[in-house]
């Protein structure tokens, strides 16, 4: 168990709902769920969630901390917002799912092998490196996530798509060396560093 996880468990004892409200982005909305299940029935990947949103909300209230945070479920969210626009209580469900996933990752409780988690982490690293996404590196990074041979295999399997995009002028091989970027990279790094500092400060003052 990570140190942060241990200290958080001690702080909230069995009150997982309060833990979610205080630590998860949009977490204060969880108690508003009335268990109608429209979200679960509206999800395009609904069949693949071990616990669809409605169930996760009830599990949070029931204190099923381990089961919720180690679940694969919220990582299945495609950010389609179908549940959000249909929810009769107007819960920002997409945001709550992202918040839960992010919190689980922070505590080290997210599943170890979770492709969407890997992609999410790589995307953030990629887009904040220069301020703009390097699509080629992002894709290759994902292929080579499971090692060199696996990457070569995946790259080979997808070669026709890559060549098609290249021919269509929608892929630039030189992005591997120098991609699109912002001019004021220094400013971007400084502002992101400051944002992290502010968040650490806030955390400290509320605890």
């Amino acid at each position: 168990m990570s140190e942060l996880n241990t200290s958080t468990t001690e702080k909230y004892h069995n009150n997982f709902l309060r833990e979610v409200e205080e630590n998860v982005e949009e977490g204060e909305w969880v108690k508003m769920c009335m268990q109608c299940g429209v979200c679960s029935g509206s999800c395009p990947l609904g069949a693949h969630w071990a616990h669809p949103p409605q169930e996760l909300f009830m599990m949070i209230r029931a204190g099923k901390r381990e089961a919720v945070l180690s679940s694969d479920s919220m990582w299945m969210c495609t950010s389609c917002y179908n549940c959000v626009v249909r929810c009769p209580r107007k819960l920002p469900i997409t945001g709550i799912m992202h918040g839960l996933a992010s919190y689980a990752n922070k505590l080290g409780m997210a599943p170890k092998i979770q492709p969407t988690r890997d992609f999410s982490l790589q995307f953030w690293k990629n887009c904040t490196r220069t301020g703009r996404v390097n699509e080629l590196r992002l894709t290759l990074g994902l292929y080579f996530n499971d090692g060199l041979m696996a990457g070569i295999k995946k790259g080979w399997a997808m070669r026709n798509i890559g060549l098609g995009l290249l021919k269509a002028g929608r892929l630039n091989p030189f992005e591997l060396f120098k991609g699109h970027s912002c001019k004021d990279q220094q400013g971007i790094q400084a502002m992101l560093k400051k944002a992290a500092e502010i968040e650490a400060r806030r955390k400290h003052s509320t605890h």
Binding site: L121, W124, G131, M191
Partner: peptide, 23 residues
């Protein structure tokens, strides 16, 4: 001038709420 990435909907595991907002 010098616009940057919005973070899209997928960067939540890597980027905190404030850092995504700041972008």
């Amino acid at each position: 001038p010098d616009w940057n990435c919005c973070g899209a909907s997928i960067s939540y595991a890597g980027g905190s709420e404030l850092s995504r907002l700041v972008l």
